[in-house]
């Protein structure tokens, strides 16, 4: 399966730091990364996924409006015939006391995996390797001390 990952911050959200760090982490882990940056629409995600034959679409949201921004997202992907794995991560609800409920909400919206903002990039990378059945490559340059 394609090792190309499409990354972006959905909606009107302009938080760029997390996505920049994810881009670096996935690149260092050997993935081909297409970073759409901040303020990316559902359609821009779909177009990029088609254009790059993406194996995974990774959505970031940090400003608390993720649920609205992701309504119908998987319909858009489906109508473009995209079968990429989809992840979402960040501050997905305002005041996320109960992350399990938040996770359930986004699973129901169609995401394969849901991460909170405390997740290390390594965790997402490991999950994606499992989901795409990829083994660590020799070009792997990230040293993880734990």
């Amino acid at each position: 399966m394609s090792q190309t990952v499409v990354l972006g911050v959905i909606g009107s959200d302009a938080h760029v730091v997390g996505i920049t760090i994810l881009e670096q982490a996935f690149s260092a882990a050997g993935f081909d990364v297409v970073n759409l940056g901040v303020q990316t629409s559902q359609e821009e995600f779909a177009e990029a996924a088609v254009a790059h034959d993406a194996g995974a679409v990774l959505v970031s949201s940090l400003y608390g409006h993720a649920r609205q921004d992701c309504q119908g997202f998987h319909d858009v992907l489906e109508s473009a015939e995209i079968d990429a794995v989809t992840y979402i991560g960040g501050n997905l609800a305002v005041g996320q006391d109960d992350f399990e409920r938040t996770r359930e909400t986004f699973r129901e919206l169609g995401f394969d995996r849901v991460f909170d903002s405390e997740t290390d990039p390594e965790e997402a990378i490991a999950a994606l390797r499992r989901d795409l059945q990829i083994r660590p490559t020799e070009t792997e340059r990230v040293t993880v001390s734990s």
Partner: peptide, 28 residues
């Protein structure tokens, strides 16, 4: 005791809010 990598960048971004200046790895 680690390679230079984007991990340092990520750790540094969070360091002050977590109470330090430099984003050192947790001691083993």
């Amino acid at each position: 005791g680690r390679d230079q990598s984007f991990r340092m960048v990520a750790d540094d971004v969070d360091a002050i809010s977590e109470g330090k200046l430099i984003g050192r790895p947790e001691p083993r």
